[in-house]
Design a protein around this nucleic acid. Structure first.
Lengths: 334, 334
DNA sequence: ATGAAAGCGCTAACAA
DNA sequence: TTGTTAGCGCTTTCAT
């Protein structure tokens, strides 16, 4: 049996309130008793029971994280940042992989509610009305990361997708490319899909390139979809000399397809990715990409959630972190 | 304020025990009252308080997971399996990334103890005496995954590293290679290091190859170490025509180095990896590798831990899952 | 400075 | 079938 506060009190020959005091307000306890209690705690390897504490404080010191895909390298990096922040702030982190499944996500929120997490970091793309309703019903403070919401004024932290996209395409144009295609996220099931498309279009028009509006193919999160999308796009537009991919995984899928067709990257087609996941610098060729501050995104999300939990509000509701172009080997001058 | 059992009881016009009963033993409650209670629960969006329950059941219905590196693709796959099993079994999962840091791991165990997790899945390489002591002090049921322990008889689930290694090298030999090198894990800080080396040696000797005992270079978990290790190995033994890498990440590091030196894979050197992480099939060239049943490893670990928690023991203490050769593009006949 | 006692939200034993 | 009540382990008044 786990020792309780009573065991410690008995062993130290004091009352349970004294034991409680040495744990919470040691300065209110006489030195000799305090020492005896400390000794007993050590000897018994006593750990206060988090259930009993939670019952009183109504706090679990646990944060919940909802991510769509634990196997995505993007989220893995984010988790690291979040967990480091949690250690600093004294929270535990409960990570839940929704697999982009609505029911599953909803079930996780119920679970968080029951387990009384102090707050939730939501990294699962679109904040649907059902999610929002449940969240507000439960009154659990929530912060969005690398997504945002138009309808609901939840605090969020992300990058400027439109600008980042624009910078990527502008870089390609600067390299002399004029026939640029894009492998994007479907607009109907992603948040960053539309702004990244908008950035692409803005760069194309601003620099007076021929109408590339339709030279876009959409894929669904994973590698093999991007592989197929690249096939479609190149079949329709064989003149393309550069491809803007909205994620590094898409870039890898595209390059993989090109490789299978004996098309050289960057020799014949330049590829730029997005995210700068850890794998980006390991791929062959090493990916030129728009780097998101992935670790920071996670770290700040936890900090922001902490702010929301403790103060009830948040300094800056929508926080934008800087992106940065990483030039490596998958792009070349036209 | 979160509604309590009292609120539900009041609204339904019954006692709190009746409410408790409809949640735990509905068949013991009269139909009309049951319906009224259900209605009240729904209307109030009542969720029983996990703290109060935990205090009574002395169970948190939460499992703890200790992993060395959340950014490793290997562990990401394992987590998915584990979480799916947890959903099935009614547990939540608390994932903690130790970053291979001893103090951090120890602190996480304390945290698990305080939060009263029902059990721990330990996936962090070596089970050091300090870890084991703390674990037994806390009396938290523990299962090892993709590692094992000679000294302590903890339940574990893994593959047969020696045999898997042997199979990989045998495959290379079957391809006609006679000068085979290896990029391995350091023996002093890994569990699978020695058996994988042993498998390599056994294959070499069994097939009467020249003494390759020393044609091994060691790396430290990550890509860039393998990159450097490959450089060292090839500088000493330029005659090598095949390389056995003990992880896919090492294989990628090796290939990356070779690429930078304009050495063709598999044209001039064949590379075989280990693990079959998701990325293995996406790399260029696609990795031939020894597949571990990564998802299953995670899934079974959670099931096994559940078995240990509920029955106090475990059917098979050391459980071995099957590995399987995945032949792709990074190897070729000599 | 210290102890006794109330109560956090729930379950389970006991009564009715 | 139902309600009353005694804890689970802890913090926090309130006395002393």
């Amino acid at each position: 049996m786990k020792p309780t506060i009573h065991d410690v009190a008995r062993r130290a020959g004091v009352s349970i309130s004294t034991v409680s005091r040495v744990m919470n307000t040691p300065q209110m306890v006489g030195k000799s008793k305090r020492l005896r209690v400390l000794e007993a705690i050590e000897a018994l390897k006593y750990q206060p029971n988090a259930f009993a504490r939670g019952l009183i404080y109504k706090k679990s010191f646990t944060l919940g994280l909802l991510i769509p895909d634990i196997e995505s390298m993007y989220y893995a990096g984010m988790i690291r940042g979040m967990q480091d922040a949690c250690i600093k702030l004294g929270y535990s982190l409960m990570i839940c992989n929704t697999d982009r499944n609505k029911e599953r996500l909803l079930a996780y929120i119920d679970n968080f509610h029951e387990k009384q997490v102090d707050g939730i970091v939501f990294a699962s793309d679109a904040m649907l009305p059902e999610y929002y309703r449940k969240l507000t019903d439960c009154k659990i403070p929530t912060v969005l990361v690398s997504t945002h919401s138009e309808e609901y004024s939840l605090p969020c932290i992300e990058i400027d997708d439109e600008a980042a996209s624009y910078d990527a395409v502008k870089f390609l144009i600067g390299l002399g490319h004029r026939d640029i295609g894009m492998i994007g996220f479907r607009h109907d099931n992603s948040i960053s899909g539309p702004p990244r498309y908008a950035g692409f279009i803005r760069a194309i028009t601003e620099f007076g390139l021929p109408d590339n509006t339709s030279k876009v193919s959409y894929a669904n999160y994973r590698f093999n979809h991007a592989y197929a999308a690249t096939h479609d796009l190149l079949t329709s537009y064989p003149e393309l000399t550069a491809l803007f991919c909205v994620s590094d995984e898409f870039a890898m899928g595209a390059i993989s397809y090109l490789k299978d067709r004996n098309i050289l990257v960057p020799g014949q087609i330049s590829i730029i990715g997005f995210d700068n996941v850890r794998m980006a610098g390991m791929f062959i060729p090493k990916l030129t990409t728009v780097a998101q501050p992935i670790y920071q995104l996670g770290y700040r999300a936890a900090e922001k959630l902490h702010e929301l939990i403790t103060t009830g509000r948040v300094e800056i509701r929508r926080e934008i972190l800087e992106h940065q172009l990483m030039i490596r080997e998958s792009t070349r001058e036209r």
